[in-house]
Simulated scan of single mutants.
Amino acid sequence: MADNMGMYDSIDRLVNMCDEVIESDPPGLRQKVVARYMTAFGEIIERETGTRVKADVSPGMIDITSIETIRDLLLAHRDRMEYDYMMAKATADQIEARATATVEATVVVDFNQTIKQISNSQGLSPEDLAAVKLALADLRFAAEEKDEGAFAEKAKDALDLASKAAGLVPKVAKAIGTLAALLGA
């Protein structure tokens, strides 16, 4: 973006110079300024617009229509650059959105599988099992909201509850790890 802004600035300066030349008086002076401008900035004009300016331009060879044409080419080039930049940004945003959606979908599937495993666990009372599921639901909400403080607190609660049943801590820890991916997505 920074490079684009520099390019826009240089094009804008050239357009402003064209405007000054087009609006200046008297015409003889204007022709000399235009010729000097065309010679001095010929390389930049060619690079920016693809239009080659003769190196030996003299005041008699330049008219205001030429400068207006160069100005229009510069503006068209700037618009094309702006369009290309916006399209590239939109594409990058779509790629990022797809990547985030993929992470979120994977997390949901993994999390749901872990919840099923926890539901099938032995050794927890129905109340404790409900408490673990509630803690994990709260944990999921904190992860989706990207609330790291609440996530850490809910993770501790879920692990404390899981410690009441043999073999449940690794399953809850897996759910916590799975949901942690949402914090960075």
Rank of each mutant, 00 (worst) to 15 (best):
A76V: 00
M87Q: 15
M87N: 08
T69D: 06
E46K: 07
I118Y: 01
I70R: 11
A90W: 00
I67M: 14
G50M: 08
T102Y: 03
R71V: 05
L134N: 12
V108N: 01
V132F: 13
I62E: 10
E127G: 00
K116V: 04
I95L: 14
S66N: 15
P59F: 04
I62H: 07
Q117S: 05
D128C: 05
A90M: 09
A76N: 15
H77I: 04
Q122H: 08
D128H: 07
M61K: 05
M81K: 13
K54R: 12
A130E: 03
A101E: 04
M86K: 14
Q113D: 12
M86E: 15
T91V: 06
I118H: 02
G50Q: 09
K116R: 10
R52S: 02
P59E: 01
K133N: 13
S121V: 13
E104P: 00
T91Y: 07
I67K: 08
T65K: 11
S125G: 10
L73N: 10
T69R: 14
P59T: 08
I118N: 03
K116G: 11
L124A: 04
L129C: 00
D84G: 08
M81F: 13
D84A: 11
M81I: 06
E127P: 01
Y85K: 08
L124C: 00
I95K: 12
P59G: 12
M61H: 03
A131V: 00
D79T: 12
I64K: 11
S66G: 14
E96D: 10
F111M: 00
L134R: 13
I95E: 10
K133C: 02
V53F: 10
E82W: 04
S66M: 15
G50W: 06
I45D: 02
K89P: 05
E127N: 00
P126T: 04
M61A: 15
Q117T: 05
T102Q: 10
Y85V: 10
R98P: 03
I67L: 15
D72G: 10
R80S: 12
H77D: 04
K89D: 14
A90T: 10
I70Q: 03
T114S: 09
A90F: 11
A99M: 06
T49G: 07
E96T: 01
G60P: 05
T49A: 07
K89G: 06
V107N: 01
D110A: 06
T51W: 07
A76Q: 05
L129E: 12
V57F: 07
E96R: 10
G123F: 11
L124M: 07
I45T: 04
E127T: 04
I62R: 11
L124Q: 02
V103P: 05
I62P: 15
D63T: 14
D128Y: 11
A131K: 14
A135L: 04
A135W: 12
E96W: 03
T51M: 12
S66K: 11
D56C: 11
P59V: 04
V53I: 15
S121H: 08
I45H: 02
L129S: 13
T114G: 08
A101D: 03
F111N: 02
S58M: 10
S125F: 05
D56G: 05
E82T: 06
I62D: 03
T91S: 07
A92W: 05
V109E: 07
V53R: 01
I45P: 13
A101P: 03
R71H: 09
I64L: 15
A99E: 15
S121N: 00
T91E: 14
S66Y: 06
I70K: 05
T49W: 03
F111H: 00
